[in-house]
Amino acid sequence: MSDPALIRLSAITKTFGRGQAAFQALKGIDLAIEAGEFVAIMGPSGSGKSTAMNILGCLDTPTSGSYEFEGVRVEQLSRNQRALLRRHYLGFVFQGFNLLARTTALENVELPLIYRGEPAAARHAAARAALEQVGLAGWEHHTPGELSGGQQQRVAIARAIVTRPHVLLADEPTGNLDTHTGEEIMDLIGALNRDQGITVLMVTHEPDMAAHAKRVVRFVDGRVDSDRRNGEPA
């Protein structure tokens, strides 16, 4: 507890619905993550791991508890401030890719930079570099419909890292991919963590994929069940 954590969750709860139909997905989560970590969040369906991920990604708000991101109390931020936090510090990779349809890979990757107000030339250069980094040089002008699942996920990763985020949040990034392609994506994400020092939080239910992480947090029934570091050094 000596150096301040990048992310600190304290007694986070999340309840969906009201009254009789209320369902408590998170029942008090305490979790600290430091810069440069590669954390896999595992757990069975309904354990609250995705809910926690969404709160970590500022896509959803906790019912109670406190969430500090680089010392900022996220639960006290306005909607727009949370959007700005996402814009400047976070990158997302989703299970379903979530690329804009009928939009070229280059334009998809450029999108966050447009919201950041980068000039066109810098935007193009950064997007090309990001696509090259994920191994998609030459595919800039293909739309998602013309790309394989693995390639689409690579575009999504390029879009997430083009802004040089502090934290990359990946929600089941390999869930829609075959094992071989999934391994490639995991290698890519591992390299981003190792070589660029991007903190990675990844939700997965596949132990093979979790094995790439340095630390595995296991959720059961809305609580942290276990939290341990993988034996293998990075």
Partner: peptide, 19 residues
């Protein structure tokens, strides 16, 4: 439906509601 998802993507990568 498609547009709502698109709006979700834009919000997730940091677009402000007013943008």
């Amino acid at each position: 439906t498609e547009r709502t998802r698109e709006i979700g993507i834009r919000l997730a990568i940091g677009a402000l509601e007013r943008e």
